[in-house]
Design a protein around this nucleic acid. Sequence first.
RNA 1: GCCGGGAUACUCAAGUGGUCUACGAGGUCAGACUGUAAAUCUGAUGCCUUCGGGCUUCCCAGGUUCGAAUCCUGGUCCCGGCA
Length: 289
Amino acid sequence: MNKILIVCGPTATGKTKFGIEMARQLNGEIVSADSRQVYTGKNLIHGKDIPYKLKATSSQLKWRDRFLKYYDVDGIKIWLYDVVDPGDEFNVAFWKECADLIIKDITSRNKLPIVVGGSGLYLESLTRKLDQISTPPNKLLRQKLVGKSVKYLFNYLNKIDSFRAAQLNISDRSNPRRLIRAIEISQSSTTYNPQSTTFNFLQIGLTAPRDFLYKLVDQRILDRLASGAALEDPDLTADIPAWQSREHSIIRHQITWFKRHLPAHWIDISDSQWYSTAQLLILNWYNKN
RNA sequence: GCCGGGAUACUCAAGUGGUCUACGAGGUCAGACUGUAAAUCUGAUGCCUUCGGGCUUCCCAGGUUCGAAUCCUGGUCCCGGCA
């Protein structure tokens, strides 16, 4: 069975760096699973680990109206950076389409796909079958519902699909975006035919105690400022403590997600032995079968 | 030194006699999550609790009052103006 290595975890844990090293050892290629890195620009702020002024190479893989690109970092290919321009529509379903294409291609060339990222839902779309993400948005419906009260939306949903309404938890019942989406899915007539490619996944999660992660990310922000991040986004970089808090909250959010959704092997990068521990796990898995 | 303004919880900040542990925002903590996911949304955030409630807060010390973050007196510190 085809193998896929997944390296996940909160931001600033060095996932990409680690992924690239594994790619070098195992003849692999990196597939980014990051909801911000799919956008062009802001390389520093979004933490795209590519050398300054390195240009992307266009591949033969066609997704929708365009050819997917990759960056060649010292012989290791990195996919799914810069897929669309800022402001363009992008989402899990799109990412999944691209990732499927790329993974198939990498595998066909007898290389190991190494999926690296912190966007939990994106990763989950790969490891679990998420049928409903393929239901396309209904622009008219959304226009009609946007701005309506949470109460109105819930009653609406309850009327057309009481089963789905009953399944929503207390949090989602007061989440307009989720309510609209639920209505959209209930009213959709498109049926989805899930692909049934199965893979042999190994999920490695890089993490560390909270304080350790905060320190890492705080320092990384200072480094990015020194590298010229202010040119990419003057507003964000103007208030450093606010930017740092923002990143802290992202880390917490990611941890909360991973705690529940991704049964990875967790590696504590504040432990001096972490690298060899992770490497051993991966090699054992890779050499099996 | 004189005149005026100010000191509220981790931070900013509202409140000028009772419904005040004290609006709101941020931060922090916990949680949800199937086409925006680094998004969107929920709860908690003085201390203790047998979850009924109990105890302690609004710079400090006194005072007035049935009752004070709120009024009075004195003190400390900060800011602006005049010397």
